[in-house]
Simulated assay, not measured.
Amino acid sequence: MTSFLDPLISFVSANAWLAYLTLFLAALLEAVPVVGSVIPGSTIILALSALVPGGELKLQWVLLAAALGAVLGDGSAYWIGHRQQREILNTWPLTRYPRVVEESETFFHRFGAWAVFFARFVPPIRAFVPVTAGALGMEPARFYAINIPAILFWAPAHVLPGVLAVSAFHQYLGVPHEGHMGKHMWILTVIAAAILGGLGVWLYRRRQNGVGIAAAAKPPA
């Protein structure tokens, strides 16, 4: 694995713009309805943030790329809902996820405008609430007044755990930033944790979707 990490780290160091672009796209696609339920955006962001303490990526640009991607993704979904109104919730591909759409509507009715803030931290409805907010008539000014602060909290909450975990390896376990096997081990550990976490979320979503489909297909008594 270290033979793979050496060129990977060198590539990221020499092409940091591509890592920032990946962060931007991961955050953007995670906010797109349906697509966001299968793209492991949070896992990608966490894994790449592990490269910050070693200097391969800069924290401020990682945060900016993630935040801009989320703003554009949420905003695009909101405007689609805003223009097509409730009709969008009854069209493909949203009709393939009736349970999540229903949960998003329930979430929105329960928390009102603040659903836009809270949903940023609740997968998988994170990818459905912005379009739902637009479809249910939430005003643009109110949407952005809540969505942008939510993203300003969300971005550090996704980036800093990877950064802090790697920094803890350096500071408390005596792992050096540069030089030998230790450099690769902390990156490998954080990436592995991110992958396992993403896999767990994916399996949970599949299980929930399976339960919802089975319930919908069950004939009435």
Rank of each mutant, 00 (worst) to 15 (best):
D6M: 14
P7R: 07
P7E: 07
S10H: 09
S10Q: 08
V12L: 02
S13N: 08
S13M: 10
A14G: 09
A14S: 12
A16N: 05
L18C: 05
A27Q: 01
A27M: 00
V35W: 11
G36F: 05
S37I: 15
V38L: 08
S42Q: 08
I44M: 00
I44R: 01
L46A: 00
L48N: 00
L51Y: 00
L51D: 00
L51P: 00
G54Y: 02
E56V: 03
L63P: 00
A67L: 01
S76K: 12
I80A: 11
Q85N: 15
I88C: 13
L94F: 05
L94D: 05
T95N: 13
Y97E: 12
R99M: 14
E102I: 07
E103P: 10
E105G: 09
E105N: 10
T106G: 15
F107Y: 04
F111V: 11
A115E: 02
A115K: 01
V116E: 03
A119I: 01
F121P: 07
P123D: 04
P123A: 08
I125R: 03
V129C: 05
P130V: 03
V131R: 08
V131T: 05
T132C: 10
A133L: 10
A133K: 05
A135P: 04
G137T: 11
P140K: 06
P140L: 04
A141S: 14
P149H: 09
I151G: 01
F153A: 09
F153G: 08
A157P: 06
H158V: 03
H158Y: 08
V159L: 00
P161F: 01
G162P: 02
V163G: 02
L164N: 01
A165C: 02
A165W: 04
S167W: 05
H170Q: 11
G179K: 04
G182V: 05
M185T: 13
L188W: 10
L188A: 15
A192I: 05
G198M: 07
V201I: 14
W202S: 13
L203Q: 15
N209T: 14
G210I: 11
A214D: 14
A214Y: 14
A217I: 12
P220T: 15
